[in-house]
Design a protein around this nucleic acid. Structure first.
Lengths: 192, 192
DNA sequence: TTTATATATATAATTTTTTACATATATTCT
DNA sequence: AGAATATATGTAAAAAATTATATATATAAA
């Protein structure tokens, strides 16, 4: 089984979910589209790691609510204790940063300002999510045995990372402005 | 063209490189194996975004040194100014954290201690890289027009992130220890 | 009234990525 | 002597991920 499968099992341990809901919950720690989630759920069900029941709805399409089985739980627990693979990060923005010296200063600034803007939105959103969790579950959330503990830890980490990204962007923008002053006040432009 | 192609072009703007070297340099901002790099370089060469020359070596296998063309440079510059796609993060460790409440405290602690350990190594390594860059290129490195500027920015960002990850892990380990004390001093264990 | 958005599931086609296979030279470690 | 590691390039097969297509209900907005 692949990592995404374990992610799904982990979410189903927290609570039974539909494929639609799982796809949304996934966002914090593993990117995947619904076109990956639905077939994998079917496979998981075939191998008896999960079960599902049809739930009819009015005003909305019917859904399948998946639950994890004992077999699934055991598989997950065994996997957790194993050393995880190295993280994969692929961020187009970073490729652009790498080559930022090829653009003009306005293009560069715009890129970083847009980054700040999208990350500020993320921070706002994340803070709300954390607040909601803290209100809903109280102090138990910091308790190791709470089913929400892991999710809470991830949210806290994400928030920090998002805030750090903004700080870094501001630092870069400062550097860009400083370099500007230098080239205006001194003749000695380039070295190297 | 895909993002990896632009990453290669960006690295070739900094300096001509072999496919082997490119695969290593890639590490900071885009994960890719050599089996992706070599065919893509061939494609890039076919479309005249890069050229290469054979370099014979003694004691080592011969290599191909790739350089970017004007056509390649223009393509890259045009791409940089466009709004980047959302970052992709896939980290198995985070899936395990999500389900950490399913394990025992020792397994949990071990996971986080191992994470700290691998990230401490990364921090050490990263600091050396940054020091080397600063020594090699001096202050010009903070200059917008330096070909090393983007790479320098990325290294600084990575270092922060790696340091932050360690801080977060320690915070989690603290939480785990606190919860331990609680369950020893108070009877009221769970709520929710 | 049309359009967009949200809920809900599913498959097909394509692209991207990983793993494995393959070869070759030289050095260092056990 | 044999094994592992580093340098160097490539291809083939398999797995994973993205994009596109498809269907269906309901609400809200333009």
């Amino acid at each position: 089984m692949n990592a995404l499968g374990y992610a799904l099992l982990g979410m189903l341990m927290r609570k039974p979910c539909s494929g639609y809901e799982l796809t949304q919950l996934l966002e914090v720690f593993w990117r995947a589209k619904h076109s990956q989630v639905y077939p994998l759920l079917a496979k998981l069900e075939q191998e008896q790691y999960v079960t599902f029941e049809h739930v009819e709805q009015t005003g909305k399409p019917d859904k399948k609510i998946y639950s994890i089985t004992d077999k699934g739980k055991k598989l997950l627990q065994k996997w957790i204790a194993q050393t995880p693979a190295a993280p994969v990060i692929r961020d187009e923005f970073l490729i652009k940063v790498y080559s930022i010296w090829l653009t003009d200063k306005n293009t560069a600034k715009k890129l970083f300002w847009e980054r700040i803007s999208t990350f500020e939105e993320k921070v706002t959103h994340r803070k709300e999510e954390i607040k909601k969790m803290e209100e809903e579950y109280g102090e138990t959330i910091t308790n190791f045995t709470s089913r929400h503990f892991g999710r809470y830890l991830l949210f806290k980490r994400k928030l920090r990372q998002e805030e750090e990204e903004i700080i870094w962007c501001r630092w870069v923008l400062d550097l860009l402005d400083k370099a500007n002053e230098d080239s205006e006040t001194s003749i000695e432009g380039k070295r190297e």
